[in-house]
Design a protein around this nucleic acid. Sequence first.
DNA 1: AATATTTGACCGAA
DNA 2: TTCGGTCAAATATT
Length: 337
Amino acid sequence: MAVTESVCLSDEQQAVAVREVAQVYELIKTQQPLLLVHQQPQQLAHGLLNHAMRALNVALSVMNQPHASSSSSAAAAAAGHHFPVMTMIKAESTPANSPAADVSDNHVAGKARRSSPAKRRRINCEDKSSWVYHTVVPHEDGYQWRKYGEKKIQGTHFTRSYFRCTYRDDRGCQATKQIQQEDKNDPPMFQVTYSNEHTCTTTRLINNTNNNPAALHSLTANPNGHPDDDSDDTILTKMIKQEQQAAWLPSPPPDLTTISNNFDETPGLHVSQEVPPCSSNSSAISHYADEFDHHQMGQQLETTVMEEALGLGADLDDPYFYDPNLLLIYENLMNCY
DNA sequence: AATATTTGACCGAA
DNA sequence: TTCGGTCAAATATT
């Protein structure tokens, strides 16, 4: 791969590029444990590398673009609507008449509230204010959400969880999100419906959607929605445990772990990963945040890192490598062929 | 104590 | 009337 000159990138382009590159890291890191159990590791590795190359292509394309200031695509990507590894069923702009847009002015204490009830609209496929994704990592989108409800939906085996932006009250952000686990459960797939654009734009890179351990556990430890089911060792829970055991690895940007293989050529081959439960005052996350800030500040470094991630003369001891294990894993995968 | 989640109730849309 | 989205008190967690 030729050396790419990283000059004149806008902040948004840099954010997109960094995210894409980090997705490669996460793809490899995520699928590493599955290689141990999958029946066809070579097939898995093939899919993995396809996605890795695809994400890198996107990153390089963005990096090589002329300096486009605040383009809508870059803005959308920075806002979390660029999910090249997810299946987006519908993507539309956000009108002002979204369901959550008029909730805030109806805060009435007690049961006799809603003297001026908020108008609601059910989210469906015709709702142009919503985006529907299918993913195995419903929590990984880089935003902070607060769960405000859970409902058993008719015709589904699993409960639907309702989230709103953590900063709704602070910053008036009206973004909401619904997570519905799909019936087919191998691997667990989730339909994630977003409504309303985020207007709180300062939290995406460092904070994680689901850095609340309780929220994470509420869906992963009991993803089938049955409170009495104590079979805790679901696939996602196991992955959380595994991720926690691997905590010595430097954590990537939490928002960069949104990964699914829906567009893979190998149907039914999906991988998932949850980031370890963490909080903003966690030393590990603080360490990571510092580290990632460092990476953001040294954008020209990213290109080098990316090239090295592809096995182009990377050194495991290179202090600038995003994660030394990335290269190791990559080389191991290449040995499968 | 502050913050987040749970969960039953409320209420609008279908 | 039913269903689903939201509220908010109660509860749990940090």
